[in-house]
């Protein structure tokens, strides 16, 4: 889409994220074991699996909220190393939505959305506010712009968090269990927002147990367990003819 321009850089590579031979240990605990994954531009990927399986950790490696001991991750052509310049470049380009929303409670909804455009992109305040109002309108809460996050419902807060990430015009969006902390009646409004976003063609990696969402939106579904990628499959195959025994037992547990 037009407003998600590539920030004046050279045309984006066709591979949005490339993860090769990734290993990570927490002390003795081998949390990610030999992860290899190529995400094409515009692809929507849903990662599921039992808790403690390394899904969130993998997602958080992609914008280097976690570091790792072995392997490489290349995001939009930039290899993530210890170099802070590379890290900041990737983080500008990758939006993230958290399970616990993590809105800044001391700032209004609007200020939450304009903070990074102003301070990271050095955008004039007026432009940043116009941009923020545009995205707040798209997640359908423009009228809450001057409230503080604590005054909003969980679903509204998560939609603000999505708008906040979009305000940086990211090419890739990461969703870390975006609906797990929500009351049941608010899950749908957040999922609807994400479905609309997917229709825009942005590259998405979503850690979620919302299997309906995965069926509807995902290009590929991944099952992770014990730090490994067990199965990668198109949704139809994943849900109707899973290849791996572990996938079958997992699906049986969550689709009752």
């Amino acid at each position: 889409m037009a407003e998600r321009a590539d920030n004046g850089q050279s045309p984006l590579p066709d591979v949005a994220v490339e993860i090769a031979g990734l290993h990570k240990w927490y002390g003795e605990f081998h949390v990610l074991r030999d992860i290899n994954l190529k995400v094409a531009r515009g692809e929507r990927i849903v990662i599921c699996g039992p808790s403690g399986g390394g899904k969130s950790t993998l997602l958080r490696c992609i914008n280097r909220l976690e570091d790792w001991q072995r392997g490489t991750i290349v995001v939009d052509g930039v290899e993530l190393t210890d170099d802070p310049k590379h890290i900041v470049a990737v983080r500008r380009d990758v939006g993230m939505v958290f399970q616990q929303f993590n809105l800044f409670p001391h700032l209004t909804v609007l200020e939450n959305c304009t903070l990074a455009p102003i301070w990271v992109r050095h955008m004039p305040k007026k432009d940043a506010e116009a941009l923020a109002m545009n995205y707040l309108a798209r997640v359908r809460i423009p009228d809450q712009a001057n409230k503080y996050p604590a005054r909003l419902s969980g679903g509204q807060q998560q939609r603000v968090a999505i708008a906040r990430a979009l305000c940086m015009n990211p090419n890739i969006m990461l969703f870390d269990e975006p609906t797990s902390a929500l009351d049941p009646e608010m899950v749908k409004e957040v999922l609807d927002t994400m479905v609309e976003l997917a229709a825009d063609g942005i590259t998405m990696l979503v850690v979620s147990h919302e299997m309906g969402f995965a069926r509807q939106v995902a290009d590929r579904v991944i099952l992770m367990d014990e730090g490994q990628v067990i199965e990668i499959n198109a949704p139809k195959g994943f849900f109707e003819a899973p290849q791996h025994e572990r996938t079958r037992s997992f699906l049986k547990q969550i689709l009752h």
């Binding site: 909220l65 500008r92 903070l115 990271v120």
Partner: peptide, 22 residues
């Protein structure tokens, strides 16, 4: 909360901006 640090870093804020603004 730790999430505040993570959200600030995920937005690309540098250390001093994260500290000063968030």
């Amino acid at each position: 909360p730790r999430g505040q640090y993570e959200a600030a870093r995920a937005l690309g804020l540098t250390y001093w901006r994260m500290m000063g603004l968030v």
